[in-house]
Simulated scan of single mutants.
Amino acid sequence: MPIERPRPRTLLIGSLSLGLLAVLVGGGLALRAGHAHAVAKWTEAEALPVVRTFHPAAAGQANDLNLPAHLEAWQEAAIHARVSGYLKAWHSDIGASVKTGQVLAVIDTPDLDQQLQQARARLQQARANAHLAQTTAVRWQNLLASHSVARQEADEKQANAEAARANVAAAEADCARLESLEAYKTLQAPFDGVLTARHTDVGELIQADSASGAELFRVADTRRLRLYVPVPQNYASAIRPGLEVSFSVPEHPGRLFHARYSGSSTAVDSRSGSLLAEFDVANPDAALLPGDYAEAHLPLPKDEARLSIPSSALIFRAKGTQVALLDGHGRVHLQAVHIALDLGDRLQIDQGLKASDQVIDNPPDSLANGDEVRESDGGEHARQA
């Protein structure tokens, strides 16, 4: 039986069908590859950390530095007993205004009184002995002139007279010492002020010159006060003559008081790293109290070289304080900076930054030098910190 051969038309149609099928398969594979590449590129881009940036701003007007401080009276004295005895009476209690020389209390000193009487009696005795010795010495000098006694004996009488005069001087000094102590039986205010403490009462035994003895009274002059402010070493240069500070105290919320610089310790305390500055405070209405805790507001001079950034931009690592900068190629550079002033939510930087730097805000903890990052669509590199 003869074999039927395909017609030429049929062969042409089959070839075209196969070609079309190949084109369709090839296009599909190419489209699939392109889509896969796009997905991979999108995934890679989304895997990059997204950051927001800003430019450092000029520090602008200097801020106040808030520091703890305390107030002390312009003058303050603890009154101790100089003589022993019993408290006979006190005349002023705490809160009383006193004047210079005003009597605060009287001490009864029977032992001292007896010692003074004995000293006065010894003085009289010494004076009598000195008078007799002097009379005897004069007589022996007259006898020596007539050669009735030996010169040795006359010289002895003269020496006795001189010794008697020395005994008189010693007795007078002892008597004057006890008389001076008698004056301390009365306790007096050393200056005008207010009695801020009384630690004794009538009949109490008073021990003089006792190292463990408590003060009997305390007097303070509160018409003026001293404000002491420990200034950190970094800001010691801000303390200068003519400086005025404001301060507040807890018992007067919302009220600011003012003080003028009067001096400083001129040395940094090695234990605290601070310079103690003293300011003079007027207190005409007695609103401020000695011993008050205060918060002083120290004005700082403006530094044009400083730049301001938010504290959220800082990175704390083993290499010290750093910030993350973004370069023009989207890569990170970690830059060490120096903090000139910490204002809490803001920092003033004096080393390590330029105004043109693009600083990353809230950098991720894992961010490393050279990492590639992507700036968010809402990136604020034009925003001033």
Score class of each variant (00 low, 15 high):
Ala166Gln: 15
Ala161Thr: 05
Thr196Gln: 00
Arg165Trp: 04
Gln207Ser: 08
Val138Gly: 10
Trp140Glu: 05
Gln188Glu: 09
Ser146Leu: 14
Gly193Ile: 03
Glu162Val: 14
His199Phe: 06
Leu178Met: 04
Glu162Gln: 15
Ala145Asn: 09
Ala145Thr: 07
Arg151Ser: 09
Ala171Asp: 05
Asp201Leu: 08
Arg151His: 10
Arg165Thr: 08
Cys175Lys: 08
Lys185Trp: 07
Ser180His: 12
Asp192Val: 03
Asp209Gln: 15
His147Ala: 14
Ser212Phe: 11
Arg151Asp: 12
Lys185Thr: 02
Gln158Lys: 11
Leu143Trp: 07
His147Ser: 13
Ala161Ile: 06
Gln152Asn: 13
Val194Asp: 02
Leu195Arg: 06
Ser148Pro: 02
Arg151Trp: 03
Ala173Tyr: 04
Ala176His: 10
Arg177His: 13
Ala189Gly: 05
Pro190Glu: 07
Lys157Cys: 01
Ser180Val: 08
Val138His: 12
Lys157Ile: 00
Phe191Asp: 06
Glu179Asp: 13
Ser148Gln: 15
Asn167Gln: 15
Asn160Gln: 15
Arg198Lys: 15
Asn167Ile: 05
Gly203Gln: 09
Ala197Ser: 12
Tyr184Asn: 05
Ser212His: 12
Ala159Thr: 06
Gln141Ser: 11
Ala170Gln: 13
Ala170Asn: 14
Tyr184Trp: 11
Phe191Ser: 00
Ser180Lys: 15
Arg139Thr: 12
Asn142Ile: 05
Ala208Thr: 10
Ser212Pro: 01
Lys157Met: 08
Pro190Phe: 03
Tyr184Val: 02
Asp174Trp: 00
Arg198Thr: 03
Val202Glu: 07
Phe191Arg: 06
Leu144Asn: 00
Glu204Thr: 13
Ser146Asp: 15
Ser146Cys: 07
Ser210Trp: 08
Ala150Gln: 13
Asp192Ile: 03
Thr200Trp: 06
Ser148Trp: 12
Glu179Ile: 07
Ala145Ile: 07
Asn160Trp: 04
Gly213Thr: 07
Ala208Met: 04
Leu205Glu: 10
Glu156Met: 11
His199Val: 02
Arg151Ile: 07
Ala211Gly: 13
Asp155Glu: 14
Tyr184Gln: 09
Glu156Thr: 12
Tyr184Arg: 04
Arg151Thr: 07
Glu172Ala: 14
